[in-house]
Amino acid sequence: MELNVVNIQGQETGRKVELPDTVFGIEPNDHAIYLDVKQFLANNRQGTHKSKERAEIAGSTKKIKRQKGTGTARAGSIKSPVFRGGGRVFGPRPRDYSFKLNKKLKQLARKSALAYKAKNNAIVVVEDFSMEAPKTKEFVNIRKNLKLDGVKSLMIFKEVDRNVFLSSRNVPKCQVATLTSLNTYNIMNAQSLVLAESSVEEIVQLFNA
Rank of each mutant, 00 (worst) to 15 (best):
V17L: 15
R93E: 09
T13C: 00
L105R: 11
R88H: 12
S77P: 03
V6S: 08
K79H: 05
G71C: 06
T72Q: 02
K111W: 05
I78S: 11
G59Y: 02
V5I: 14
A118V: 06
V82G: 00
A73I: 07
S112Y: 05
D21Q: 12
N43H: 14
D36T: 13
Q11S: 15
A118K: 13
K38E: 00
K38P: 01
F83R: 08
E12N: 13
R54I: 09
Q67H: 08
K117G: 06
Q67C: 00
A75Y: 01
P28W: 04
Y97C: 12
D21W: 01
A115E: 10
L105H: 03
S80F: 12
V5A: 06
F99A: 04
K79L: 01
F24Q: 09
N29D: 15
R84N: 05
G25A: 13
R95F: 14
K119Y: 09
A115W: 08
Q46N: 00
S98K: 14
N102L: 04
V23L: 11
A73E: 09
G91S: 15
T72N: 11
T61M: 07
K62I: 10
K50G: 01
L108T: 15
K38I: 00
S112C: 09
I64R: 14
K119T: 04
Q107S: 15
D30P: 01
G47N: 10
K100T: 14
I57P: 14
E56A: 04
D21M: 02
E27N: 07
N102K: 15
K119I: 08
Q107M: 09
K117N: 04
K104Y: 02
L41V: 05
S60P: 14
A58L: 07
K119V: 02
S98M: 06
R88S: 01
L105D: 09
I64A: 12
A118W: 04
T72R: 10
G10L: 10
S51N: 05
S60F: 00
G25F: 07
K106M: 13
R88T: 11
Q39L: 08
A73L: 03
F99D: 13
D36W: 10
A42F: 11
D21H: 12
K103C: 08
I33H: 05
Q46E: 03
R95Y: 08
Q39I: 12
I64Y: 10
I64E: 12
I64D: 06
K117T: 07
L19H: 09
V82I: 15
Q107Y: 02
V37F: 14
G76K: 10
E12Q: 13
I33V: 14
K117Y: 04
N7A: 03
S60K: 09
Q46H: 08
L105W: 00
E12W: 01
F99P: 04
L105A: 10
S51G: 07
Q9L: 13
T22R: 07
E12C: 06
Q107I: 11
N7K: 03
K106I: 03
Q39M: 14
Q9W: 13
K117E: 07
E18P: 02
T61Q: 10
P28R: 05
I8E: 02
K117S: 01
G14C: 11
K119A: 08
V89R: 05
A55C: 04
L114P: 06
R84Q: 02
P20G: 08
K68T: 07
N102A: 14
T13A: 02
V17P: 05
K50F: 03
N7L: 04
S80V: 06
R93G: 04
S60R: 14
L105E: 12
A109D: 06
K50E: 06
H31P: 02
